[in-house]
Structure formats: structure tokens, C-alpha cells
Design a binder for these strands. Structure first.
Lengths: 238, 238
DNA sequence: TAGTGGTCTAGACCACGTG
DNA sequence: ACGTGGTCTAGACCACTAG
């Protein structure tokens, strides 16, 4: 994990050290001055790295004392942020499988062009994938992606990780997303593609994904079985 | 909204300008250099304010071009972060009411002392409050608060905002929280205190709230009726 | 008083986008 | 070539915590 950024490298090095237990919870990190020496850099650069650690729940900075290592981020899964299903399951070391039920190139209808804020008649990839975790089909991911950004797409790519394909093969820069969490009644499609046990509702996570140029290029509905849904967030008071 | 911080003041001023439409979506903010002149400050200070705008979804910074104003944050409610019920409803201008069903000072049992990571036998305030929105009781908030931090508490305070009391009257510095979202079967208590229409489940938001000294001082369960639950998040790709 | 983090400055050089 | 944002520096002064 080496980027060209000094402060990002320092952030990754320190966060790895914390996760590996080199710095233990309820102990202090070296002072900013000491870190300046260790990384041969200026204090503002160290502080950028420490700010990232603080925002991600690794440390609590305390004026006059130092940076205290916190005990969260221990094997908890932080779905907060933009993390793909594949990335998340990999980080958890889970036994999973993806079944591609649909991969079509269609013209948008009115509803879809309003969700994607695109011209009516634009072409979009429509994908439906069921996620099997420990033998049960518990998540249905439905994706709509503007073809203008993704010329071609195959079942193999969908069964693996479309994000890895977008970022590594197509060079798309995924930048930010708006997410909405609600609970909705199950549809016939949910019942057909998931193991629902007669549940009446699913958790719906709508995801509006934007590129660096702010273009909205993907709309995703992630439909989770109630008992398998969990979302963990870390927040700081403004 | 004036703090002692230059960059916070600049952040608030610019975010207000964006919300008031002085800077419109899909237009560029003045360049960092121009903002330096306008606010009579250095570029790094301007950049701290712009970083906050970016993290909160107000702008997209684009190298070589400028800072583009985004169109989100328009009347959407951002439950992300630590915001109390009262603060949220006030910002939405909603007609709400709070009914206090329980306010007791009890000794912790095993389950509670593990949730609050405190010594068994510590005393905690136990609060149960139902939230009525537009005539329906749709949220049940259950709070457990260490008495060591909050010596006394009244029904009047609970009916208003306990956060305002903690921060303004007691001078407690609420700093960060870990939140967990799940869906759980309804309990008899849910059925008694909420208008559930025969729902089988509620959305449970667990909230572990810490002070600036990292002390865990409050554990909250917020139980939402399925059809009234909505959570909106803004996330940036790492 | 010494050490810590919080803020701010006035530069510097680089990478990117546009003309 | 020029203006933009991205990174980095080497200081400064302040506020807070501790012994």
C-alpha cells in the first residue's frame, strides 16, 4: 500500500501498526514531534495523517496529552464509506458466492433516467446478482450503469467484482456516493432469487455513485434479508 | 455560528452561502487564491475549510479546474454523524412530541455493564421515550447513562433534549460514537409504546456514545417503525 | 516549566486543465 | 503559458496537561 503521498503512507503505516497491535488500545502514540523525526517530515504532514486516523476511529487526539489509541476497528466491519461487496467479504474472510441472474443492455425508461439523471433513451447495463453467504442467498444486488462509461461487460466480470474492473481496467475514478437505507416490502423477484423464509420486508440500500468529474454513472439497489443486515458506522460530533 | 477558529468560520460561511444558493450547483467556487484575499488568510487555512466542504458533500474539488458546487444537501436529512432527535426534527421543521415513559436510577445488571463497559453495580439512568411524529408514535428511544457523569435528571429535561442539557448545562464534551443498524423482532414493549399496525420487526439503531476523554458514558437503543425509517449517508471512496 | 496538540502563516514545488 | 488545486515545509504562537 504505497502511494505517492507522504501523509497517506504515514496514515497506512500507523493504522496497520494499530491493527497489528504494535500500538495498543489505551496507550499513546509517539508525539507529533517524535513522528516528525521518525518519518523525516514536517509537523503539518504528520497532522494530516493523524487527522485521518482520528476520522476513521483509530485514535482520539487529546490536547496537552497526546494521541490515544482506541479499541474500536477490531474485526468490526465498517460498511461506512464506499466499499464493494467483494472487498468487504474478502476483508472478513467469508465464504461467499455470486450468481448473475441478469446482464442486459437496455434503453432507460422514465423512472430509470430520473434515478440516473440521464437523458431518456440512454443505454444502461442492467445487472441482477444474488449473493450467497454460508449457503444462503441473502442479498440481491441490482445495478444500473451508464453504457457511455462502460462499453462492454461480461458475466465473468459481474461474478467477480465490477468495481475492480471499473477502477483497474477502465481507469474510472469512483469518487463519492449518496446512500439511502430504508425497509421495503418484498417483491416477487426477491422471493424468487433469495432465501427469505416468508419474510415480509427486506432492507433496501440505494446507492448513487459518482465519478471524480461528478458524473452520476451507477445506481444500485442492494436488497438484504432482514436477519443478515448489519451496518456499522463511526461518527464524530460536529 | 462564530467560533474562534478561522477555518471553521470560513466553512460555515461558505456552506451557508451554498445552502442559500449564493453559490449555485454546477458552478465553481472562487479559487483558493481569491478566497485567501476575501478572508484575509493563508491558503492552507482556506484549504482546511474546503476540505470540510468536500467531506460533507458540498463541493467536489477538481485539480486544474476549481471547486464545483454539488447539488446534494438540498433538504435531504443527513442522519450521518451524531445528531440528536431534537436537533434533527428541528432542522426539518417537523411537528413532533416526546412522551417520557420511564426515568429511573438503577444498578447495572451484567448485560448493561458489559454494554457500557463499566463496573457491575454502577448506577445508571434508565430512560424510555416515545417519539410522536405527525400523530403517530413511531420511535422508541431507550437510553442508559452513567450517573457518574450526570448526577441528576428530570422528566422535563428528557422531554426536551438531553444532549442540549449535557453539553450546555453540564459542560460534557460529546466526541464520537459507534452506531450499529440492524432489524429486530418487535418486543411487547415496542407494541405497547408504539403504533405498530401488526409489524413483526423494527429497525434498531444502537449507539455507543463517548466523551472527549474517550469515556463511554451513554448507550442508546433507538427503535424505529419500519415504514418511517430512513437513513441517508454521504461517503467518499478511500 | 516543559511537553503536548491546535491553529496559522508565507512561502515552495508539483500535476493537471485550458487556451 | 497560465491558473487551478495537491502536497510539503519550517517556522510561529496559543491552549492545555502534567509534574
Amino acid at each position: 500500500m504505497t502511494t505517492t503521498n507522504k501523509y497517506m503512507n504515514i496514515f497506512h503505516e500507523l493504522s496497520n501498526d494499530i491493527e497489528k497491535g504494535i500500538y495498543e488500545p489505551n496507550t499513546l502514540l509517539p508525539s507529533e514531534h517524535e513522528l516528525c523525526d521518525r518519518f523525516a517530515t514536517s509537523r503539518e504532514t504528520i497532522r494530516k495523517a493523524l487527522t485521518l486516523l482520528s476520522q476513521n476511529g483509530f485514535i482520539q487526539k487529546m490536547r496537552g496529552k497526546g494521541s490515544l489509541v482506541l479499541g474500536i476497528n477490531k474485526m468490526e466491519f465498517p460498511v461506512s464509506g464506499i466499499v464493494s461487496f467483494k472487498e468487504l467479504q474478502k476483508s472478513l474472510g467469508r465464504d461467499t458466492h455470486t450468481t448473475v441472474h441478469k446482464l442486459e443492455l437496455n434503453e432507460t425508461n422514465d423512472w430509470l433516467s430520473s434515478q440516473l439523471e440521464c437523458d431518456p433513451g440512454s443505454f444502461v447495463w442492467e445487472i441482477a446478482r444474488a449473493r450467497t453467504i454460508q449457503g444462503e442467498r441473502v442479498i440481491l444486488d441490482k445495478d444500473w450503469i451508464l453504457q457511455s462509461h462502460v462499453p462492454s461487460l461480461t458475466e465473468e466480470i459481474c461474478a467477480d467484482s465490477i468495481y475492480a474492473y471499473f477502477e483497474n481496467k477502465l481507469g474510472l475514478a469512483i469518487s463519492y456516493a449518496k446512500k439511502e437505507f430504508t425497509v421495503e416490502p418484498v417483491t416477487d423477484e426477491d422471493r424468487a432469487l433469495l432465501d427469505l423464509d416468508g419474510d415480509s420486508h427486506i432492507v433496501l440500500v440505494k446507492n448513487f455513485v459518482h465519478l471524480e468529474d461528478t458524473m452520476l454513472f451507477q445506481y444500485t439497489e442492494s436488497r438484504h434479508r432482514l436477519d443478515k443486515f448489519k451496518f456499522v458506522d463511526f461518527a464524530r460530533r460536529k
